[in-house]
Design a protein around this nucleic acid. Structure first.
Lengths: 258, 258
DNA sequence: TAACCTATTTTTCTCGATAAAAATCTGTGT
DNA sequence: ACACAGATTTTTATCGAGAAAAATAGGTTA
């Protein structure tokens, strides 16, 4: 009777009672942040912060003081701290002894390192997936490829920065191709590495996509995978990653745009 | 003056003032748990819980109620919750909406899955390491192999359960071989998968080591790696993992020994 | 002036208490 | 007896306050 949903009500009653809080959150996170019922505040804070860090809304190196985050996101100190600890486990946030949290720095050497690991995992997942994939898997690739094509077209038309929509389609497309690899652990690891790379991708102001035809790259990959040509698919994937990487290397040292 | 080390003093003043708490902790974690200075209680709790879960002191599936953990480890609710969230990120702990935490269950299918991912990552790291390793790397393998040999001998002499010492030597030995792979990310991922597997290894009551000569397996691996024979090294590693796995498969369903 | 020690402020971390949710128990009606 | 609704208990999640640590500022001495 006097009992409201845990996740919604306390959020609003955290100090201010009007809609300004939601406005702030929407500004910070992009979407209205509709918390799934049963979701904990700590997890909601985790999701919002994670999304903001990956998309670059929270700049690399930025100090994440609890009071500041409290003002921005409207969560209390406890959920925020728990969220930050989780993000630290993801390597998205740096935690120093008694000196608080900060957004993990972007570093070119780190990115090369990351790319090595990602390529290894992606190759393995791709080969397994090609060996094991069934009809439903193929259909999933076709569907994701279709949406990817639309986003690629929209992107090259506007010549603008990468959008959230494009990112989502990209993630779905690449995930679809490795989905049948048969190891949830491999997919988990892969997803983590993918998210890390997404951060670098989106942080780079100078995305010289002009010289790339992403649509063609994606089409070629899907084709190779559907043709079960593992060697070609791995080769295309590696080149795909490398092209993104090299466009970042040519940009000025990342992480200085705080 | 009135200021003590953060990590030690509050621990003892958490309710009881006598040494019983330490006794409990020592019982639970195996060692006196000497917290590094500057370490946070949350991180100390994380380390202790993590070690206990991996070594099986906290049984798979066991519910981790805050009050219970408070009594066992002597930490307050906040550090404990933060530690549990970190462990959940590591997939060592399962967290359910508003229903608390529990030790992740052990499951044979899950272990097969895990082994796929681990083998992939280990192979890649091994190949890279063999390609790039220098003299210091070789020396590290020789040193770790020497200690490993001692522990293997001690183990086969007592025919007893795997000890903490053996586990530590095993971890160090395998880590030494991949240490030169050149990607910290790959090593991080690898370490996480290794720890997960260690859990399965130690949980299995029926470790039919009798038929295995671990010392010989380890020596052969070190030899192949030092000879820079990547194919052989990968092959031996895969077989090494597979043997451990098969000895678990023959045991009754794991995780029922709570 | 520079180095060092002390006091103050700021920030982080932890605890105890409280509110919210789930689980359990109880009684009621069919 | 069984199913269901309501109330109670237990467990979990969150908040606000306070203790501890780091950072900063100020003052003293060589």
């Amino acid at each position: 009777m006097k009992r409201n949903r845990q996740v919604a009500a306390p959020r609003l009653s955290t100090g201010q009672g009007d809609a300004d809080v939601n406005g702030l959150q929407a500004m910070a996170s992009g979407q209205p942040a509709q918390p799934d019922i049963g979701e904990t505040l700590a997890r909601a804070a985790y999701r919002e912060l994670r999304a903001d860090i990956i998309k670059g809304a929270r700049a690399p190196g930025e100090r994440l003081r609890i009071e500041k985050l409290k003002a921005i996101y409207g969560f209390g100190p406890t959920p925020l701290r728990e969220a930050l600890q989780m993000l630290a486990a993801d390597q998205l946030v740096l935690v120093e002894g008694n000196r608080g949290f900060s957004v993990a720095q972007l570093d070119l050497d780190e990115f090369k390192d990351l790319n090595v690991a990602r390529t290894v995992v992606e190759h393995a997942a791709l080969r397994l997936s090609i060996a094991k994939g069934d009809d439903a898997w193929e259909a999933g690739i076709v569907a994701a490829g279709y949406l990817m094509g639309k986003e690629d077209a929209a992107l090259s038309a506007t010549a603008d920065r990468v959008t959230d929509r494009w990112e989502a389609a990209n993630t779905a497309f690449h995930t679809a191709m490795v989905a049948a690899c048969g190891s949830r652990w491999l997919l988990n690891v892969r997803a983590g590495l993918h998210d890390q790379c997404a951060r670098y991708r989106r942080a780079s102001v100078y995305q010289k996509r002009g010289e790339r035809d992403l649509g063609a790259e994606h089409r070629a990959m899907a084709e190779a995978v559907l043709a079960r040509d593992a060697d070609l698919a791995c080769d295309l994937t590696e080149r795909h990653f490398a092209l993104t990487a090299s466009s970042l290397f040519e940009a000025p040292p990342a992480g200085r745009n705080a």
